[in-house]
């Protein structure tokens, strides 16, 4: 009886996890007209794709770094509040609003006569050309990723017994020492999860780059989307996909270790 209930799930695993990934790898060995080839892999290591991959990683690194720098102090600040759950809800709420709508808002704010330039003008700064720049791409991405970085970190710092911090102070540690020697090591699993859930999507999101930067920034995700839906060169798209999967596995291995169940991913992008 209970075994019967398991069957649909097993079918799901085979059909929607194993088969698609297998097909993806398989397709990477075919060219645009369906002949078996290794050319896609050759092309991927050409300078054009190699530079694109490097820049995609660079942007992902910057986005992850800034998200972390904003989120860690925020997590500590929320930890000290009385109504933690309320503040957390406030953080989560924007993630329930479609990513595209939020990105779209920035088109307005970053526009020539948008809010940002109005503020800049009020401070006597010249007009900033934000839209269609990579700075805008990073700002919007960080904005989108903050909640995803924050939640695992918050779960980690919230689980730390305050007595440990008191003990550190009692033993003569300064605030900075306490942060560096107690808080940071204890919240490391949360930070790792945070990096995991931000870095991989940063490599692969394509709608933000399309909407905010036009075609100026190309990430692995943008390239895959282009190969599949515009150029219709599925073989090449699949090849980039295979490398994205490899990158994902690499990041997972680096950041996994003893990962805390509670800090698991809460949303997806």
């Amino acid at each position: 009886m209970r075994k019967l209930l398991f069957i649909p799930y097993l079918i799901w695993i085979v059909l929607f996890v194993v088969a698609p990934l297998g097909l993806m790898v398989g397709y990477s060995f075919f060219d645009i007209s369906g002949n078996p080839t290794l050319e896609n892999y050759g092309a991927f290591f050409s300078s054009e794709y190699f530079e694109m991959t490097l820049s995609s990683f660079w942007y992902a690194f910057l986005i992850t770094l800034f998200s972390l720098l904003v989120s860690y102090p925020l997590a500590l600040a929320i930890r000290q509040t009385k109504h933690k759950m309320f503040w957390l809800l406030l953080i989560i709420l924007p993630t329930w609003i479609n990513l595209l709508l939020k990105t779209y808002a920035f088109i307005g704010m970053f526009g020539k006569e948008g809010l940002v330039n109005a503020v800049a003008a009020a401070f006597g700064l010249g007009e900033l050309q934000l839209l269609f720049s990579d700075v805008a791409f990073i700002i919007v991405s960080v904005y989108i990723f903050i909640p995803f970085m924050l939640l695992p970190i918050f779960n980690a710092v919230d689980g730390i017994d305050s007595n440990l911090l008191s003990a550190a102070r009692d033993l003569g540690a300064s605030k900075w020492d306490t942060l560096r020697r107690v808080l940071l090591p204890l919240s490391l699993p949360g930070i790792k999860t945070g990096i995991q859930v931000v870095f991989i999507p940063s490599l692969s999101l394509f709608m933000i780059t399309r909407l905010i930067t036009g075609n100026k920034v190309i990430t692995l995700g943008t390239a895959i989307e282009q190969q599949f839906l515009t150029t219709e060169n599925w073989g090449m798209g699949a090849t980039i996909g295979v490398f994205l999967i490899l990158a994902m596995m690499l990041v997972m291995t680096v950041t996994s270790g003893r990962s805390n169940k509670e800090t698991g991913r809460v949303g997806r992008l």
Binding site: P20, I200, P201, L203, G241, M248, L269
Partner: peptide, 12 residues
Amino acid sequence: PDVIIGASLLIL
């Protein structure tokens, strides 16, 4: 990542 899910399901 969503692109991977999307692209691989498209192939499927």
